[in-house]
Design a binder for these strands. Structure first.
Length: 560
RNA sequence: UCCCCGAUCGUCUAAAGGUAAGACAGCGGCCUUUGGAGCCGUGAAUCGUGGUUCGAAUCCAUGUCGGGGAGCCA
């Protein structure tokens, strides 16, 4: 929809140039390679949108490939959630996802090949010894005493590693590159470690597992990936990525790095998100306050809105931080087009229409979506006793306030024009408990046959017909723009917003909402967008506020 | 300290040696049966210093600042 207005980016430029030059016969193949060690978050949405978007734009394919080379951190639960999230975002990866673990045998065979070529060796140094001999930024590392073992010995040892003859950590397979390289990644990096751990897919078939650097490029090569797009922190790994495919003489994908997404007030570290879940600081990975795809979906964010956000972010190599308001803009933009309008009162104030007949009910026609005439209309019951929003009445209106107050007239949307005649207060507290109004019978439907202008139109719900619901109002999970950064002497969870969730249990909604189903999205007029929670049931409705409407009055009032 | 990468409105991105543009956010207005949406308008930037060039955001040098890098994590 908004794709036509986008400009190019440096990655697309590279692809265009490659197609023009005939590289890979003009073929474009990308991949999205998550590690199944957590749930996907909005940062991944950017990568998904980019990789699948590029593939589709140039008539290519994008694989979903699990980077499952570390059995100690990876689980099937994560695999399942990732598949669901990628599909929901519209990522078309064909009939099934791929797994690095599917290629373990090929990767092993290639390791043997490198040993035969004298490019890899079995090293008996412990992890501590490897660290101690790696050198520093200014000093070269020290070559391992096992570096010059014979090919035969390396072959034998490596096979025995695979056969489980050695305990965890006893030996590694290392690439023989350059211990003096200024790039640490080239100082004889570990290719395989011994891990007697059960893998979520290969079970106990393997007790040695390839490291990221040794697996990733080879997987890309196997899948004939043309453009392997990853984030900036892998820039230093590119020389190693290239070295492995060159030594093997296999298909050579091009690694291209771009900036990962950072969002204000949002945590993007899987490890820290895991902490929130494990410590019970949020309900779950899909808590609507979480920046996870599943959390955002549950909150009511639409896939289209998320995609538009991601598409319009741009792609570069600068590490910046995007304002949360930008995400909210694209969510609102999409929901404005698509969400059915309804009326709901969050904090009810009883209104009695003193000149409206008791027992009378009129069904008023209401527009379902002014942005989409095909959405049609519905009937909303109107009666003598209504609820309006507490915020829509002020006994003493501040400057610029043009909702209801004593003696003032407002329009009840799709109802009547009403004038406030009386205020009933609790004698003990002085709190307004009820207000009385009179309707102008000539204004049925909210029309003004005399052409009279009213400053304000407010929403309402017929008290007798209202359904009661729980509504959860969310604010940012954190109070600071960069929540990953712990305050002085504290931990990052100190940044949590104690008011990130407000639960309203007696919201009054128009009766049509009684049939709302989980994940249904609505605009509660004048309030915001709301999504039916997955725990909602007909006898216990639960709505999550996705995002509020822009509220200019709140801004005016705040400024005083 | 060494290596790699980066630096354009408040924020995110454009401008491929030739008028610094758009979006979000802000501000002002119009319109409105949502103080929503929409529409119109407006303020706002090339990190510093040298150099090359008729001409530099763009090329070169240098400085500064920011990010990443010494896992048997990815």
């Amino acid at each position: 929809m908004s794709s036509s207005s986008e400009s190019s980016n440096f990655i697309r430029d590279i692809i265009v140039a490659d197609i023009e030059s005939g590289k890979h016969e003009g073929r474009v193949q990308t991949r999205f390679p998550p590690e199944p060690n957590g749930y996907l978050h909005v940062g991944h949405a950017k990568s998904i949108t980019l990789n699948f978007g590029l593939a589709s734009e140039f008539g290519g394919k994008c694989n979903l490939r699990f980077d499952d080379t570390n059995p100690e951190k990876e689980e099937t639960e994560y695999v399942d959630s990732i598949i669901e999230d990628v599909r929901w975002l519209g990522g078309d990866f064909g009939v099934k996802p791929l797994y690095a673990s599917d290629y373990f045998q090929q990767i092993y065979d290639w390791a043997v090949e490198l040993i035969r070529k004298g490019k890899a060796y079995v090293c008996d140094l412990s992890a501590e010894e490897v660290r101690a001999t790696r050198g520093t930024p200014t000093e070269p590392g020290i070559e391992s005493p096992y570096r010059n073992r014979s090919v035969e010995e390396n072959l034998d040892l490596f096979e025995r590693m695979r056969n489980g003859e050695f305990p965890d950590g006893a030996r590694t397979l290392r690439a023989k590159i350059d211990m003096a390289s200024p790039n640490f990644n080239m100082r004889d990096p570990v290719m395989y470690r011994i891990l007697h751990a059960e893998h979520h897919r290969t079970g106990n078939k393997w007790c040695i597992y390839p490291m990221y650097d040794w697996a990733h490029g080879q997987c890309d090569s196997i899948e004939k990936i043309t453009h392997s797009i990853c984030t900036l922190e892998f820039e230093d790994h590119r020389p190693l990525y290239d070295w492995f495919v060159e030594q093997l003489g296999i298909f050579h994908p091009q690694q291209i790095e771009f900036d990962r997404l950072s969002l204000t007030y949002t945590l993007m570290s899987k490890r820290k998100l895991l902490t929130l879940v494990q410590q019970g600081l949020v309900e779950s990975w899909d808590d609507p306050r979480m920046p996870t795809i599943s959390g955002m979906r549950r909150r009511g964010y639409s896939a289209e809105g998320l995609r538009n956000f991601a598409r319009n972010l741009g792609v570069s190599k600068t590490n910046g931080i995007t304002e949360l308001s930008r995400l909210e803009y694209y969510i609102r933009e999409d929901l404005n087009r698509t969400a059915t309008r309804v009326m709901g009162v969050l904090k009810p104030l009883k209104v009695v229409l003193t000149n409206y007949p008791e027992g009378q009910v009129e069904w008023m026609e209401a527009v379902n979506n002014p942005e989409d005439p095909s959405a049609g209309t519905r009937q909303v019951p109107f009666s003598r006793e209504l609820y309006i929003e507490q915020d829509d009445f002020r006994e003493v209106p501040p400057k610029g306030y043009y909702r209801l107050s004593p003696g003032k007239e407002v329009r009840l949307r799709y109802g009547y024009l009403v004038t406030c005649t009386d205020v009933v207060k609790d004698p003990a507290t002085g709190e307004v408990t009820e207000i009385h109004c009179t309707i102008d019978p000539a204004t049925k439907g909210g029309t003004t046959p005399d052409g009279r202008k009213v400053k304000s139109t407010i929403h309402w719900v017929s008290a007798a017909h209202a359904v009661t619901a729980t509504v959860r109002l969310y604010d940012t999970l954190f109070t600071v723009e960069n929540p990953g950064q712990a305050p002085e002497g504290g931990v990052f969870t100190d940044n949590l917003n104690p008011k990130s969730l407000e639960v309203i249990t007696d919201a009054k909604l128009e009766p049509a909402l009684a049939n709302a189903k989980p994940l249904d999205r609505f605009q509660f007029e004048r309030l915001g967008y709301f999504c039916v929670d997955k725990t909602s049931a007909a006898d216990k409705l639960v709505f999550n506020r996705t995002v509020g409407l822009r509220d200019t009055w709140a801004k005016v009032e705040k400024k005083g």
